[in-house]
C-alpha cells in the first residue's frame, strides 16, 4: 500500500503548478491514498511476457513540408488576458 506524506503532495503540487491550503491538503492526502490503493492493483498483474506494440506509421505517410498561412495575429491574441505590440505579455521575468 502506497503511503503518501504531505511533503510528497507538496512536491506534486509544485510540479502541477497548484496550491492547496492546509485543510484541503489533509483531505487530499486521504483521497489520494485511496486512489493509489485502487490504482496499485495493477502491480499484481504479471506482465513479464507482454510486448508493448505502439501505433506506428511509415516515414512516407508523414506530412509534406508545405508552408501554409496560419491565423492572424489578431486571432492569435483573441483570448489573451494581456497583450502588447502583437505579443502575449506577462510581468517582466528576471533574465536568467
Amino acid at each position: 500500500m502506497e503511503k503518501i506524506d504531505i511533503a510528497e503532495v507538496k512536491r506534486l503540487a509544485s510540479l502541477s503548478a497548484l496550491e492547496f491550503d492546509e485543510k484541503s491538503l489533509e483531505k487530499f492526502v486521504g483521497d489520494f491514498e485511496n486512489i493509489l490503493n485502487m490504482v496499485g492493483e495493477i502491480q499484481k498483474c504479471d506482465t513479464s511476457k507482454v510486448e508493448i506494440k505502439r501505433a506506428c506509421h511509415d516515414f512516407d505517410e508523414l506530412r509534406d513540408d508545405e508552408a501554409k498561412e496560419g491565423i492572424s495575429q489578431e486571432e492569435v491574441l483573441l483570448n489573451s488576458p494581456k497583450s502588447r505590440k502583437g505579443c502575449f505579455a506577462v510581468p517582466q521575468m528576471l533574465e536568467e
Binding site: A67, G70, Q73, F88
Partner: peptide, 24 residues
C-alpha cells in the same frame, strides 16, 4: 531548413512580425 514547422504547416521563417507565423 524546412518550409514549415515541425508539427504544423506554419512558415519556418525568421524575422516576421510577432505571432504572425502561428496557428492553433
Amino acid at each position: 531548413k524546412t518550409n514549415s514547422k515541425v508539427f504544423c504547416s506554419c512558415k519556418n521563417q525568421f524575422g516576421s512580425a510577432p505571432n504572425t507565423n502561428c496557428c492553433p
